[in-house]
Simulated assay, not measured.
Amino acid sequence: MKKLSVLFAAVVMLLSVGVKAQKVASLDVATILNMMPEKKKADDQLEAYSKAKQAEIQKAGESTQAIFQKYQEEAPKQTAEVNKTREAELQKMQADLQAKSAAAQKDVADKTNTTFAPIEAKFNAAVEKVAKANGWDFIFDANNPSLIYKTGPDATSLVRKELGL
């Protein structure tokens, strides 16, 4: 057991001698992104697009609801066969509505990804340029709750300057 602990200590010492000190900085990602005019414009476009999709789904839902109420009121006056046909029709309409809702959610997600891709690329390029210029090996998001200790330089102002904000 004693030999094992001596061997472990020797390995740790050898590794610590060979490890280069890493330069680390923090960055307030949310603040910078919210300052970018491109992001503000993208947020507005996506909100309008999302509201339009929601309005489409709501309109379709109201139409389905109106038909359902009509069929419910007329059900006692109809034959069992007609009611069964109407029930199948309503189930199909409900399935179509769910499919439209899922498609709308996918469309909004796709539009979000497409819209934010160039913004993300511009941001990442600025961060990389600032990190290389200052010799930083790592930059952590200052807003990350798993970051429990923060010291060293803050890259926020340099990235903002690089982006012209």
Rank of each mutant, 00 (worst) to 15 (best):
V24A: 07
A125S: 12
E120N: 13
I139A: 15
Q72N: 07
K20P: 00
V127W: 00
E73L: 02
P145E: 12
K122A: 10
K3E: 06
F138A: 08
M1K: 05
I119F: 01
Y71R: 04
G18P: 00
L163A: 12
A66T: 09
K2Q: 02
F140Y: 14
K3I: 11
A104W: 05
Q91C: 06
Q69K: 10
R86S: 03
Y71V: 00
A121C: 06
V11T: 06
M93R: 15
E128Y: 00
I57E: 06
V6G: 02
A103N: 11
V127H: 01
S50I: 04
K23N: 13
T114E: 15
I57R: 07
I67W: 03
E81M: 08
K40H: 04
K129N: 12
E89S: 10
A88H: 03
K132C: 06
E74P: 02
A80S: 13
A60W: 05
T64Y: 09
A9K: 10
E38L: 08
Y49P: 01
V17T: 11
Q45K: 13
K92G: 01
A103E: 14
Y149V: 13
M1Q: 07
R86H: 09
A99W: 09
L147Q: 13
L4D: 10
D137M: 09
Q105P: 00
D28L: 05
E47M: 09
P76A: 08
Q94N: 15
P145Q: 13
V127E: 04
V24H: 09
